[in-house]
Nucleic acid binder design. Sequence first.
DNA 1: AGAAAGCGTAACCATCAGGTTACGCGTTTG
DNA 2: CAAACGCGTAACCTGATGGTTACGCTTTCT
Lengths: 116, 116
Amino acid sequence: MGAIADPVRREILVMLRDGRLSAGEIAGRFRISRPAVSRHLRVLRQSGLVRDELVGRQRLYELDARQFTQLSAWLAQFVQPHGWEQRLDALETEVYRTRRRRRARGAADEAKENTA
Amino acid sequence: MGAIADPVRREILVMLRDGRLSAGEIAGRFRISRPAVSRHLRVLRQSGLVRDELVGRQRLYELDARQFTQLSAWLAQFVQPHGWEQRLDALETEVYRTRRRRRARGAADEAKENTA
DNA sequence: AGAAAGCGTAACCATCAGGTTACGCGTTTG
DNA sequence: CAAACGCGTAACCTGATGGTTACGCTTTCT
């Protein structure tokens, strides 16, 4: 879980949010050496936050949402004790709005996941 | 943000989930020395995850939900890209269930907070 | 096949973070 | 007022971690 503790790693995650990137592409956006980034990538890989795939001579990285979901779930137990109800109301509103937006266009997704 | 990276710190947070505790009480539940715990507490304090108050000769600690909410918000941006809709549905169910439960008894809370 | 690109790993350093013991300060208690 | 309790901080040691350069492997390009 300490994977998200490092600022470089967090930035990598943010980059990956917009889509998959090759190791070189990622490394190129930092001032630190490529091997350094490579190791950060390994940490992210081992922590399960990121998934990698070899394509030709380059390795592409992408986020693996499952781990994030789990983290969210863990954090949730601490958000409850306080203004729980307020937040639920806000969430309800958001859910409603998004569902409307979804119906407006057409939806096609893949399934399976937990509550959080 | 690296505050939640350490297992001892995480455990402290879990303890505090059930209510405020004194430094000694917390330290007593670990095998590591009291000063060590004391420093973990300082890290939690500085990261804003925990709030402390002096009562007599002992210092009581309690969770500060605000920071958790913020963390949740940060994590949320990574949970979306994937099975967004599924999760919303699950959330909607949870919201509904909890609101019912709330109505069943009576609710009294304090206000203000964001979406998370 | 040979050169170059794209990555990861190994070896090595410097820095940091966690743990321990020693110590000091404020608050109860007798 | 003195003794004891409850905590935090300082000083010190040690293991973990991030960064760098050197090197090796696999895939593409000519």
